[in-house]
């Protein structure tokens, strides 16, 4: 039996992304790992309920069974959201780096910018 198919690969890629989030301190790498996670999810979605010999549900022709269009439709939305998320994350990071020169997650409240007022 073949174990290398879309769903398993999707799950693996998701957890590889998660692993990157756990061990990488750089903010840019965090954003990259987030994108990796998302591609894992997308791969998972577009391969679920997929059977060979199906055709796209376009037009009225009925020579073969239609493929399930819902996951693909969902993933178009998810990709758009993913792009938005990546863009906003990068914008925040760029602003933070340019203003304050910080590229890594830190534990130090001073470095984060707390004013030690109280």
């Amino acid at each position: 039996m073949n174990f290398i198919f879309g769903e398993v690969a999707g799950i693996l890629i998701f957890f590889i992304g998660l692993c990157g989030l756990m061990i990488k301190k750089s903010i840019v790498k965090t954003i990259m790992a987030l994108t990796v996670m998302e591609s894992g999810i997308i791969l998972f979605y577009i391969t679920i309920n997929y059977t060979p010999d199906t055709i796209p549900p376009i037009g009225q022709a009925q020579e073969a069974a239609f493929a399930d269009p819902v996951p693909a439709a969902l993933m178009i939305t998810a990709i758009v959201i993913g792009i938005g998320i990546t863009a906003i994350g990068l914008t925040m990071f760029m602003h933070y780096k340019q203003e304050h020169g910080i590229t890594h997650w830190t534990r130090d409240r001073n470095q984060q910018g707390s004013e030690r007022k109280c």
């Binding site: 965090t30 994350g89 602003h95 933070y96 910080i102 984060q112 910018g113 004013e115």
Partner: peptide, 14 residues
């Protein structure tokens, strides 16, 4: 757009 607020916002966001 304060420094600490951006850091906290980024943590929250991600």
């Amino acid at each position: 757009k304060e420094k600490q607020a951006i850091y906290d916002g980024m943590i929250y966001f991600f």
